[in-house]
Amino acid sequence: MKAENNHFAKAEMLIRKPVSEVFQAFINPEITRKFWFTKGSGKLEQDTTTEWTWEMYGFSLTVTTHVLQENHKIVIEWGNPDETTLVEWIFSPLNENETFVSITNSGLKGDADKIIDQVRNSTEGFTLVLAGAKAYLEHNILLNLVLDRFPKGLA
Rank of each mutant, 00 (worst) to 15 (best):
L14M: 12
E124Y: 10
N121Q: 13
A133I: 09
F23S: 08
E83V: 06
L68W: 03
F126R: 05
T48R: 15
D111F: 11
F37C: 04
I76P: 03
L108V: 12
S60G: 11
L108N: 04
N97A: 10
L14T: 01
L137D: 00
A131E: 13
T123N: 13
H139S: 14
E88S: 12
F35Q: 00
V63E: 02
T85L: 07
E55L: 04
V19H: 08
I76N: 00
P29S: 07
F23P: 05
T84E: 11
Q118M: 14
V75C: 05
K39P: 00
E98W: 00
I103R: 02
L61S: 03
H72Q: 15
T65L: 00
F23M: 13
T84H: 03
L130N: 04
W54F: 12
I103A: 01
T85W: 01
D113R: 08
L128I: 06
M1I: 08
E45H: 05
L130C: 08
T62S: 11
L137F: 05
N5L: 10
S122C: 13
N28D: 15
D47F: 00
D82Y: 03
K73S: 15
L108S: 09
L86T: 13
N97R: 01
D111R: 14
P151Y: 09
F91T: 05
S60P: 08
L94G: 08
I116Q: 12
D148A: 05
K10W: 01
I27C: 10
K10A: 11
W36F: 14
A135E: 08
T104L: 00
I31P: 04
F8A: 12
T127C: 14
V87N: 03
H139P: 04
K152R: 14
N121L: 12
A112R: 11
G40E: 01
D111G: 14
N105E: 11
D117L: 12
E21V: 09
W89Y: 11
S92V: 11
N144L: 09
E98Y: 00
K2E: 04
N6K: 11
G125P: 07
L128D: 10
E12P: 04
E51F: 06
A135Y: 07
I74G: 00
T50P: 05
K43P: 03
S41W: 07
V75Y: 03
V75K: 04
F26S: 03
P151C: 10
M56F: 14
N6D: 10
I115Q: 07
K114H: 14
F23D: 06
L154H: 10
I141Q: 13
W78L: 08
L145Y: 15
R33G: 02
V75W: 01
Q118S: 11
P151W: 10
G132M: 02
W52E: 09
I76W: 04
E30V: 02
K39R: 12
E55G: 01
D117P: 01
E70I: 03
E45Q: 14
I116H: 06
D117N: 14
L142V: 15
K109P: 05
W89C: 05
Y136W: 15
V75E: 03
Y136D: 04
A155M: 08
A155H: 09
N28I: 05
K2G: 00
T32E: 12
G79I: 09
P93C: 12
K39L: 02
V67R: 02
E30H: 06
G42I: 05
I90M: 07
Y57Q: 10
R149G: 00
D47I: 00
K134R: 15
T104Y: 01
A135F: 02
E30Q: 15
F35D: 02
Q46P: 03
S92F: 09
K10V: 10
A135P: 01
